[in-house]
């Protein structure tokens, strides 16, 4: 920030947060929920992937009562839900039509933007 100078520690923390906002081109909005920012809470003990079968706490609140550590980062649903949990996520048919739709996406949390969009083949 050029016109305001952070003086106390809270102000410095606010500046830190707004710096990332400011670094985007003007007017650009991004999908906040899919961003992997710095961890907001200390790393909790490892909880296995998956939904209610392993008693992870679900969508509403995490173990600490907040929302920072919900059972799955949503982008991971793309993989976990359609393969492991039978959650009806709208993803391409990996078996028949689009076996390579995730080829450029090595790690969903980082590379989710590279996932291909698949359109129905109009020639058929």
């Amino acid at each position: 920030m050029k016109h305001l100078t952070a003086i106390n520690r809270k102000a410095a923390r606010m500046e830190e947060v707004t710096r990332t906002e400011a670094s985007r081109p003007e007017g650009a909005k991004d999908v906040v929920a899919l961003q992997q920012g710095p961890p907001q809470q200390p790393e909790p003990p490892h909880i296995p992937n998956g939904c209610s079968l392993v008693f992870s706490p679900g969508w509403e609140a995490d173990r600490n009562g907040g929302t920072a550590g919900l059972c799955q980062p949503v982008e991971r649903d793309l993989f976990d839900c359609h393969m492991g949990c039978f959650w009806p996520a709208q993803v391409p048919d990996q078996l028949n039509h689009a076996p390579d739709w995730t080829a450029k996406c090595a790690a969903a949390q980082k590379d989710w933007r590279k996932i291909d969009l698949i359109f129905p083949d109009e020639k058929k």
Binding site: H3, T5, A6, N8, K10, R13, M14
Partner: peptide
Amino acid sequence: RYVYLVPSAAVFALDDCS
């Protein structure tokens, strides 16, 4: 010139323009 923000409790110094 400074401002104390409420409710965040942050303290910032202002420049002429702000």
